[in-house]
Simulated assay, not measured.
Amino acid sequence: MSAPPAPPVREPAWSVSRSAIWLWVTEGVIGTLVYGALVAVAVLTVPTSAGGPVPVLRWLLPTLVAVYAVVAVGVRPWIRYRVHRWEVTAETVHALTGWLTRTWTLVPVARIQTVDVTRGVLQQMYGLASVAVLTASSQGTVRVPHLEVAIAERVADDLARRAEQVRDEAT
């Protein structure tokens, strides 16, 4: 008897929470402030030399920070929101992440060993949580970032219950 055919690979059905956009904007602002402070220190403390590379760096570094700010605050959060997706089906957990490098991860429910819900500091500010579905394989972890807390808790409870049922049926 052969195994049933694998389900077709398709884009997962659900987006992360819209609040994730503002979390990513906040991360972009924080990164911009850090880079801006480092550039300000560098520009203000490095002595000017005649004809050397330092005069160029005095305008180039702030320009690079400004470009970073535009991308990190105005572009990246919106793109990430459009491309980060997740779904839980009867057989698998799907996650599609990354805005430059896309990562597609599928974990069969039968392979789930642990389901974790985590909340970082910024996630707590925006009422978000991430779900991590772990298997025995080092490559088998699925992370679904930035779900609303209630949804993350329901997903984790449902997956833990279904994984337990599958284990009970296997014994």
Rank of each mutant, 00 (worst) to 15 (best):
L64R: 03
R85D: 03
V67R: 04
R76Q: 12
T92C: 09
R80W: 06
R102F: 13
I79V: 15
L96C: 09
T89L: 05
L96I: 14
W86H: 08
A95C: 06
T105H: 08
Y81P: 11
R111Q: 12
W59L: 10
L64I: 05
V73M: 13
L100T: 14
V121P: 04
W104L: 15
T63S: 13
R102I: 14
V117I: 00
T63A: 09
R111V: 11
V117T: 08
W99M: 10
R82P: 11
A90R: 08
A72D: 01
P108Q: 11
V117W: 00
A69D: 02
E87V: 08
V109G: 11
T101W: 07
V93W: 01
W78S: 09
V75F: 00
V88M: 09
V83R: 04
A66N: 03
V93H: 02
P77A: 12
V83A: 08
A66Q: 00
E91M: 13
V83Y: 10
V117G: 02
E87Y: 07
R102S: 14
V65A: 01
A95L: 03
V71S: 06
L64M: 12
W78E: 12
V67C: 12
L106N: 14
T97W: 00
V109P: 10
W86F: 06
L60T: 05
W104I: 15
I112C: 04
W86R: 04
R58A: 07
V93N: 01
T92R: 09
V65W: 00
V121Q: 04
A110L: 11
V109I: 15
L61D: 09
R85E: 06
P77F: 05
W99N: 08
V93S: 03
W59N: 08
W86P: 08
I79P: 03
Q113P: 07
V70I: 08
G120K: 00
W104T: 15
I112A: 00
W99G: 06
P108A: 15
E91P: 11
R119I: 06
R82M: 13
H94A: 13
T63I: 03
H84D: 09
Q113N: 10
R102T: 15
T114Y: 06
R119P: 02
G120W: 00
I112P: 00
L60W: 06
H84C: 13
A95D: 11
L96F: 08
P62Q: 01
V73L: 09
R119W: 02
R85L: 05
W59I: 12
E87K: 12
